[in-house]
Design a protein around this nucleic acid. Sequence first.
DNA 1: CCCTAACTTAGACAAGGTCTAAATTTAAAG
DNA 2: CTTTAAATTTAGACCTTGTCTAAGTTAGGG
Lengths: 137, 137
Amino acid sequence: MPDLLDRLRERDWRLTAQRRVVTEVLGGEHVHLTADEIHALAARRLPEISRATVYNTLSELVALGEIREVNTDGRAKRYDPNAHQAHQHLICIQCGTIKDVHPEDNPLSALPPSERFGFDISDVEITYRGLCPNCAS
Amino acid sequence: MPDLLDRLRERDWRLTAQRRVVTEVLGGEHVHLTADEIHALAARRLPEISRATVYNTLSELVALGEIREVNTDGRAKRYDPNAHQAHQHLICIQCGTIKDVHPEDNPLSALPPSERFGFDISDVEITYRGLCPNCAS
DNA sequence: CCCTAACTTAGACAAGGTCTAAATTTAAAG
DNA sequence: CTTTAAATTTAGACCTTGTCTAAGTTAGGG
Ligand SMILES: [Mn+2]
Ligand SMILES: [Mn+2]
Ligand SMILES: [Zn+2]
Ligand SMILES: [Zn+2]
């Protein structure tokens, strides 16, 4: 899989300086930043980038399927660059650390037809919560 | 299991008129109202109940373990009176209908030790999404 | 080089929620 | 019953997160 910036160049998407820095500060596994955190990081490289542009860029990347929105706690949404590999999340209830995790079975298989209410189910989102080893000690 | 109001009377919790109406408008399966919806329903019986009291009462009920907070979509939190039976949620991506569902297997069993990062996992939250039969037709 | 469409910006606005200080209610004590 | 202190409620200010708008800037095709 080519890298995110390379993929974006292919698509009909003008790669401006603002979009480049937003894209660059996203990256890696287990990375789940809020829009404000992304704005702060981007502003270190491009001081006058606006909040609106960060929000716009993130929305476009979500629409392009290049990043995913994660709603962890009813507070700020987080943006996940690991969009091309299906995965779930494990969150520390103490410090908030978020890990990408990969369950073995297809999570849908555990829901019997009698519990589907006639829905055509297209997506399953799982959040595991617990104490991380750091906080446990 | 005694009814919610009965249980609350047992505990050291002053059952004021405001707390009573908030508690009364909560109730039933597949019920997942927002704080504002609860406030509107409560105000039909007790017109001068304040938003702050609704939020306070809901927080207390959550702390008492009598209702659960559900974060469905990064918008308003929803409050679930079905707190004593572990269950998960199935949401229509079109109309937003929320159903309580009960997977067969323990959802934790699908996460192998190698994917637990040393966490002591205490809770799993699953959201299934799809099109409800009503919206599909 | 010019025109136009795409992009960016500041700041107003909105939804959802929290907090505070004052008023009211409750219940315990006398 | 009256007094008093603690618990509860209230209005509205305030905060966080996110969206929108109108004006300014940039950039590529002709
Ligand atoms: Mn992730
Ligand atoms: Mn429920
Ligand atoms: Zn931790
Ligand atoms: Zn529907």
